[in-house]
Design a protein around this nucleic acid. Structure first.
Lengths: 183, 183
DNA sequence: ATCCTATGAATCAATTTTGATTCAAAAGAT
DNA sequence: ATCTTTTGAATCAAAATTGATTCATAGGAT
């Protein structure tokens, strides 16, 4: 059954699993299941092996962030708007954002996973430079890396209770665009 | 024998292990040893269990970064200078920086590890705000988190070949203080 | 050349993890 | 209320990991 409801359930499970995997990368499948409040057997029915689980999560990330990139109109919308939208999407799917960063290196070993995500980001930041929004004395890939670092860093900080959830989007935008120096 | 040479060897091993542990958190001790070019037996002689290894690395981090914080005179030196010095230290020990971030949550579960590191950072950024160096519409803990995120994010990006190693300190300072917006 | 030490390969028992299955109970649908 | 589906607990063999040891040898120091 591939009902919309089942898909929503799956997405919840995947988000919880992403979180648990980032939280305790060395957890056994047993512990992983417990961590998200299901039995080992149910986790097994969802994904038979850990490898399958990671792959499924990766594919889900690809799906979600492809949508996010499309929704943000990275290649057409006004750069500040697109950036805001992109940030919002990544904060909305913070578990997947964290997971993607955490397991990105594994994905790179496995060349099948889409190259598109960071390429799209690079292109976006390059456009932002060409349109005079971003400074040009920092390479576009570095801009992308800085933005991603701040997103996952602050998402993680929020999880640890170090920053408030409420103001995150604004905080990110200010710190990223204007920096932390006074005036 | 606790000769200085042996200590230097140990530090090299610890740095390599930190890197390997961040790279492949789920590696077996066998794989871990291989990853840093030693045999399982030698790794065993260095640390009998994984737990011992993590603990030793944590203590080493505590040591190294306590020194770094002291050397940067976080509570007395001019804030921009201290920040520069702090960044330099963390870049110098990039493997440990990455490891510390990666295993920070584990350290928090284990209350024995020093609380001092992030407390010292918070205090420093707060002082920077009081002295008018940092903007005050971002809480000091958030400033600390943003700085740490950028450091480890860019260190990681450098490892992946996404940013050049050469300009890292300057890149960090510009992006952190002035932001990424043009002018 | 001769020690001495450090290393790596191999082995081994004990424990843990994995992948799979079975069965009874709980949850949902009709 | 009955039927169907989903879940969790328990079990189990196979595989992997761990912690420990032994032995041969490669390298360094004298």
């Amino acid at each position: 059954m591939t009902t919309p409801a089942a898909d929503a359930e799956d997405r919840k499970l995947l988000a919880a699993l992403a979180l648990a995997l980032v939280d305790q990368p060395r957890a056994s499948l047993q512990e992983l299941a417990r961590a998200i409040g299901i039995s080992k057997a149910t986790l097994y029915r969802f994904c038979r092996t850990r490898e399958q689980l990671i792959e499924r999560l990766m594919q889900h990330c690809t799906q979600v962030f492809s949508d996010a990139i499309r929704d943000a109109s990275l290649d057409t919308a006004a750069v500040p708007d697109a950036l805001r939208q992109l940030t919002a999407s990544h904060l909305e799917h913070r578990e997947l954002t964290a997971f993607l960063m955490y397991y990105w290196k594994d994905a790179l070993r496995d060349p099948c996973v889409e190259e598109g995500w960071d390429a799209a980001l690079d292109a976006f930041f390059l456009r932002g430079q060409q349109e005079g929004v971003f400074r040009i004395d920092i390479p576009a890939p570095a801009l992308a890396e800085i933005w991603v670092s701040m997103v996952i860093g602050l998402v993680d900080a929020e999880r640890r209770g170090r920053v408030a959830r409420a103001g995150l989007p604004g905080l990110l935008e200010r710190a990223f665009l204007q920096g932390t120096a006074r005036q």
